[in-house]
Design a protein around this nucleic acid. Structure first.
Length: 270
DNA sequence: AAATTCTCCTGAAGGC
DNA sequence: TGCCTTCAGGAGAATT
């Protein structure tokens, strides 16, 4: 599934093909995604060059001179650059047809979103309550420790809360807690600033590594030969419940936290 | 305010 | 082989 590094890789992959160009046509094949895609999308995009593409959390923000288009990949979404007139396949819900190239949005499970935010996107309800980006410097141990004061929920849920820090999904939360040796069940408010410092550093490191890896797959975002392969990063324990801990050989346990599967080592993670 | 549960959807996996 | 059931999961919305 697209995690933050995949979204960032998508951003870097599509940007050079689209910046400075205008949308000449919009094709909406299926508009019922997480939210309904506005039918009058083309009205906003018409004759307005794409100035830049930003990423906030796992949202892609396509900044046109007329306003900002938000794209969210959800669980199964992907973006691809195709030549004009590339035949569409099942789940290819949206085409933004630029001057000589097509940005195609594909999403089998339709948890994604395509929304028009207009000018002043920062004030949109989707963006204005988000916490800091995990890769910026105001995300650190001091911040986490402060934000966790008196919070009793499990730390895994805490770091997956978009108001606390953005873009840390199930995979990275699971892996970062393992690397840091923190039990995902531990109450957020009962963790020292020192351990939070380690956790914040670990999250940054894992995300940055994945983004670097993603660079090698950029070519996959161009072309019509299937969807881009999300890169397989090395996962230590995610999805490996029942197998032995790579550190101490103790069988890894699984718990459900907020309806999300969580794997941890009962010995290494306290 | 904080915590928990619900919701959208499809494809993959498991059972018989 | 095939049909049915179950489940995963991002994250906002609804509920407690």
């Amino acid at each position: 599934m697209p995690e933050l590094p995949e979204v960032e890789t998508s951003r870097r992959g599509i940007s050079p093909h689209l910046i400075g160009k205008k949308v000449e046509q919009v094709i909406l094949r299926h508009t019922q995604l997480r939210w309904k895609i506005p039918q009058d999308l083309f009205k906003h995009l018409h004759n307005a060059p794409l100035i830049s593409i930003d990423r906030r959390a796992k949202y892609l923000l396509l900044n046109f001179s007329s306003g900002t288009l938000l794209i969210h990949l959800g669980m199964s979404g992907s973006l691809r650059i195709c030549p004009l007139n590339t035949p569409h396949q099942k789940h290819d819900h949206v085409d933004l047809i630029f001057e000589n190239t097509v940005l195609r949005f594909t999403d089998p499970r339709r948890f994604g979103a395509v929304l028009w935010l207009g000018l002043n996107p920062e004030s949109s309800p989707l963006l204005n309550k988000l916490g800091p980006e995990p890769l910026c410097e105001d995300f650190n141990g001091r911040y986490l420790h402060q934000a966790a004061q008196k919070r009793k929920l499990p730390v895994k849920q805490f770091i997956m809360d978009q108001k606390v820090v953005t873009g840390v999904g199930n995979i990275y939360a699971t892996e970062a807690l393992f690397t840091t040796g923190i039990n995902p069940n531990r109450a957020a408010g009962c963790i020292s600033q020192k351990r939070y410092q380690l956790l914040a550093d670990t999250i940054k490191e894992i995300l940055q590594q994945a983004i670097q890896q993603g660079g090698t797959t950029l070519k996959d975002f161009v072309g019509s030969d299937g969807k881009p392969g999300y890169f397989q990063q090395t996962l230590h324990i995610y999805g490996k419940a029942g197998q032995n801990c790579p550190q101490c050989q103790t069988p890894l346990k699984a718990v459900k936290l907020a309806a999300r599967n969580s794997v941890y080592c009962p010995k290494c993670q306290r």
